[in-house]
Deep mutational scan, measured.
Amino acid sequence: TEYKLVVVGAGGVGKSALTIQLIQNHFVDEYDPTIEDSYRKQVVIDGETCLLDILDTAGQEEYSAMRDQYMRTGEGFLCVFAINNTKSFEDIHQYREQIKRVKDSDDVPMVLVGNKCDLAARTVESRQAQDLARSYGIPYIETSAKTRQGVEDAFYTLVREIRQH
C-alpha cells in the first residue's frame, strides 16, 4: 500500500529536517529553504509493509500558489509548527483551512506536530497545542528532528489516521 503524505507549515519550522531524519536517519543542521522535494521510503507499520511517498513543501509565502496542487494529491498532512515560534503555531489554522477548502472536506487525515521540542526556549505550551488538536479532532505529537524523538511516531500516526479514514 502506498501513502501520499504531505508536510506543511511555516518556513523554518523543520519540515525538511523531520523528513530527512525519518528517511535518512540524520539531522540536517543548516537551513536551506525548500521549494519542493519528495522522498520515498518502505516501512512496516503495524505489520503492514507500506511505501511512504512524502512531499516536503515550501513554507515560504512566495510558493503558496503551489499549495493547491499538492493538497489535492496528498492523502494525509503533517501540519508542523516549531514550539519556539508562536507565529508558526498561529499559521497552522490557515494551512488547515486551505487543506479543507482544496479537499472540499472537513475530515482530512492530519496530525499536528510541534517540532524542536529539544529546545528550552518554548513559547507554545503543550497544552495550547493539545487544545488546538482536540478542537480539530486530530492527534498532537511533539518531535525533535535533532534527537529523533517522536519522528517515526508522527509519520506513522498519520498513516494510521489515513487507514482509519
Rank of each mutant, 00 (worst) to 15 (best):
E2G: 03
E2V: 04
Y3S: 07
Y3F: 07
Y3H: 15
Y3G: 04
K4S: 11
K4I: 03
L5E: 00
L5Y: 04
V6G: 03
V6R: 03
V7D: 04
V7S: 03
V8H: 04
A10F: 12
A10Q: 01
G11D: 11
G11M: 10
G12R: 13
V13A: 12
G14E: 00
G14Q: 01
G14C: 02
K15I: 00
K15G: 01
K15A: 03
S16C: 05
S16N: 03
A17H: 02
A17K: 01
L18V: 10
L18Y: 01
L18C: 10
T19E: 07
I20M: 04
Q21C: 14
Q21E: 11
Q21M: 12
I23C: 12
I23Q: 06
I23S: 13
I23P: 02
N25S: 12
N25E: 10
F27G: 04
F27I: 07
V28L: 05
V28E: 11
E30R: 04
E36R: 01
D37Q: 04
D37R: 03
S38H: 00
R40C: 11
R40Y: 07
K41H: 09
Q42F: 13
Q42W: 04
Q42D: 12
V43D: 10
V44T: 12
I45A: 11
I45W: 13
D46H: 09
D46R: 11
D46N: 11
G47R: 07
E48W: 05
T49G: 12
T49Y: 08
T49F: 07
T49C: 10
T49R: 10
L52R: 03
L52Y: 11
D53T: 03
D53P: 03
D53Q: 01
I54D: 02
I54M: 11
L55K: 01
L55H: 06
T57V: 03
T57I: 11
T57E: 01
A58S: 10
G59Q: 05
G59P: 09
Q60D: 05
Q60V: 15
Q60L: 13
Q60H: 13
Q60P: 14
E61W: 15
E61V: 11
E61C: 13
E61H: 13
E61Y: 15
E62R: 14
E62W: 15
E62L: 15
E62A: 04
S64M: 06
A65R: 04
D68P: 00
Y70D: 10
R72K: 00
R72P: 04
T73Y: 15
T73F: 13
G74M: 08
G74K: 02
E75P: 02
G76F: 13
G76K: 00
G76S: 05
F77L: 02
F77Q: 00
F77C: 03
L78P: 02
V80H: 02
V80W: 02
A82S: 14
A82D: 15
A82Y: 00
I83Y: 08
I83G: 13
I83A: 14
N85I: 01
K87L: 08
K87P: 09
K87D: 11
E90I: 10
E90T: 11
D91T: 11
I92S: 05
H93R: 13
H93L: 10
H93N: 15
Q94G: 08
R96C: 13
E97M: 12
Q98V: 09
Q98R: 15
Q98A: 13
I99L: 13
I99G: 02
K100T: 09
R101I: 07
R101M: 04
V102C: 15
V102R: 03
K103F: 14
D104V: 12
S105G: 12
D106F: 05
D106A: 15
D106Y: 15
D106K: 03
D107P: 10
D107K: 15
V108K: 01
P109F: 05
P109E: 05
M110N: 00
G114V: 04
N115M: 13
N115E: 13
K116Q: 15
C117Y: 09
C117F: 08
C117I: 07
C117S: 13
A120Q: 06
A121H: 11
T123R: 05
V124Q: 04
V124C: 14
E125N: 12
E125C: 12
R127H: 08
Q128N: 10
Q128S: 15
Q128T: 08
Q128W: 15
A129I: 04
A129G: 15
Q130C: 09
D131M: 13
L132H: 11
A133S: 06
A133W: 07
G137I: 03
I138D: 05
I138P: 02
P139D: 03
P139R: 06
P139C: 05
Y140G: 01
I141W: 01
I141R: 05
E142R: 04
T143G: 06
S144E: 09
A145M: 07
A145K: 04
A145D: 02
K146M: 14
K146T: 12
T147P: 05
T147C: 14
R148E: 09
G150W: 08
G150S: 11
V151Q: 07
V151H: 15
D153S: 07
A154K: 03
A154H: 02
A154Q: 01
F155K: 02
F155Q: 00
F155I: 12
Y156E: 14
T157F: 10
T157A: 14
T157H: 14
L158D: 00
V159T: 05
R160C: 09
R160Q: 13
R160M: 09
E161P: 01
R163T: 09
R163D: 09
R163N: 13
Q164N: 13
H165P: 13
H165I: 15
H165M: 13
